[in-house]
């Protein structure tokens, strides 16, 4: 079941595509089709996975230890923006060996399909994952037409 969101596409193939994309960028320079204007550097906090069904689009943001009151989710047409901030505890007097956790403000923007309904959005935060479900308009869903 999880394969659909995390490994549904061949990971190797995905990496190959990404490599091709970057090589093409070097080969053809400004004439190559580049990355999305709102795409971000790999590793940007928080990581996001997006899945879709004909009925809705599901966006998952993986951000551990967030305060739900400090997360802002907004949608304008088909542009979903999630922003907020995570302030880590300052452990006075402790000596740090590793400091890998992201500290500070964050913002991610996801371009959704055009048929989403901005009025029907639900968001919940559980186990460190913010799940935003956006319904799609019924009229644009594929319909089965019976031949009589």
């Amino acid at each position: 079941m999880f394969e659909t969101l995390f490994g549904g596409f061949d990971a190797d193939l995905f990496d190959q595509l990404r490599r091709l994309e970057s090589e093409a960028g070097q080969l053809f320079g400004p004439y190559a089709r580049g990355a999305g204007i709102r795409s971000v550097h790999r590793g940007t906090f928080p990581p996001i996975n997006v899945g879709a069904t004909p009925e809705r689009v599901d966006v998952y943001l993986f951000g551990a230890g967030l305060d739900p009151k400090r997360i802002e989710v907004s949608i304008q047409q088909n542009l979903l923006t999630v922003s907020g901030s995570r302030a880590l505890d300052a452990n006075q007097g402790a000596e740090y060996y590793r400091r890998e956790r992201y500290d500070g403000d964050f913002r991610r923007v996801v371009t959704l399909p055009d048929d989403v309904d901005p009025e029907k959005v639900e968001a919940k935060y559980r186990d460190g994952v913010l799940h935003v479900a956006i319904q799609r308009r019924a009229a644009t869903r594929p319909r089965q037409i019976t031949v009589s």
């Binding site: 079941m1 999880f2 659909t4 969101l5 995390f6 490994g7 549904g8 596409f9 990971a11 995905f14 790999r42 940007t44 990581p47 996001i48 996975n49 997006v50 899945g51 879709a52 069904t53 009925e55 809705r56 689009v57 599901d58 993986f62 996801v110």
Partner: peptide, 13 residues
Amino acid sequence: MPAGMTAVYADLH
């Protein structure tokens, strides 16, 4: 996750 979901974008693999 809803049944029949397809991946559109993934940072986590």
